[in-house]
Amino acid sequence: MSLPATTSHNEPEHRFTSSLSPDDFKALFRGHPGGVAVITADAGDGPVALTATSVSSVSAEPPLLIFSVSALSSASAVLARAETVVVHLLDAHDLEVAKLGSTSGIDRFAQTHRWSRLVTGEPVYHDVRAWVRCAVIGRMDAGGSTVIAAHALQAQLERDASEGAALVYHNRSWHRLGDHSRID
């Protein structure tokens, strides 16, 4: 069965008579770990950042990725207007940056030694495993979130994946994956 597509200007064609409750849906995905990224942008009013576990590669040629942003996020208004974003792909060494992007009510750019601007103007955090500068190519409203599609333009790899331990979010907590957690 295919679900009806939604866009930022159209309502879905069908309404479903039953649905999982928000609590049941959250409980379902607590058991599904996600890689951790921090997304930064500046649409002209100052930089914003948020931590996301929804980043996913879509295509290698052209190089595309997607992520989602809750309408409740303090960064959502800027991400709705930004033409470019920087997606920081984190490992366990970057836990403090992940926590910074996920903490409400703070200035995520107060510690000026942690970040700078690329020559193109986007805010970028220093010394993270990797970052990729992207052009936003599409947005789609999906429930209380917006799914953003982006084309990778430029990247920097500070640490290869084999040098660190992956950072994942699972069951409301941060986890480190490494050789100790390998099961094959």
Rank of each mutant, 00 (worst) to 15 (best):
T146F: 12
V78G: 01
T51F: 14
F29M: 13
V55S: 09
A77C: 01
A77S: 15
T84N: 13
S73Y: 08
H9R: 07
G101V: 06
F29N: 07
V87H: 10
E61W: 00
L118F: 01
A43W: 03
D127H: 09
H175D: 13
E158G: 15
G101P: 03
P22W: 08
E122R: 02
L72T: 10
A165K: 04
A71W: 00
N10G: 07
A37I: 09
S54R: 06
Q111H: 07
H126Q: 10
A52C: 11
V86A: 02
N10P: 01
A71H: 10
R15T: 15
A37F: 06
V147P: 01
R114W: 15
V85I: 04
Y169N: 07
S59L: 05
R172T: 12
R114V: 14
D94P: 03
F25T: 10
T17R: 04
G105A: 02
D141R: 02
L64S: 12
P63V: 07
R182A: 12
A161N: 05
G121R: 03
N171T: 14
R159E: 07
H9T: 15
G46V: 09
L153C: 08
S19T: 15
R182N: 11
S104L: 01
R172V: 09
S76I: 13
L50A: 06
A82T: 12
H113S: 10
R15H: 09
F16H: 11
A135I: 06
H113A: 15
G121E: 01
I183E: 10
V55K: 03
Q156P: 01
F25Q: 06
S145L: 05
G44M: 06
V87F: 07
P12M: 04
A80E: 14
P4M: 10
D107W: 05
D160F: 13
T40F: 01
W174A: 07
S73R: 13
A49Q: 02
I183A: 12
S162G: 02
F67W: 06
T120R: 02
D107P: 04
A166M: 10
N171Y: 03
A155P: 06
A75N: 10
L153Y: 10
S54W: 00
A149W: 14
A43G: 07
A142Q: 02
A135M: 06
V48T: 12
L3D: 03
L72S: 14
Y169Q: 11
G138S: 14
T84A: 06
R133I: 05
G138N: 14
H9E: 11
S68M: 09
G31M: 04
V86Y: 00
R30T: 03
V55D: 13
S74L: 05
I148A: 07
A110I: 09
V136T: 05
A60P: 06
L64P: 09
G105V: 02
S19W: 06
L72I: 05
E13M: 12
Q154T: 13
S173W: 02
A27Y: 00
R159F: 09
T51V: 14
E13D: 14
A80T: 12
G143R: 04
H175V: 10
S76M: 04
P47K: 03
V38F: 02
T53D: 01
G144W: 13
I183D: 10
R172P: 03
S70G: 14
K99H: 03
D160M: 11
S8I: 13
R139M: 07
L64W: 11
D179L: 12
K26G: 08
Q154P: 00
S57L: 14
I137G: 01
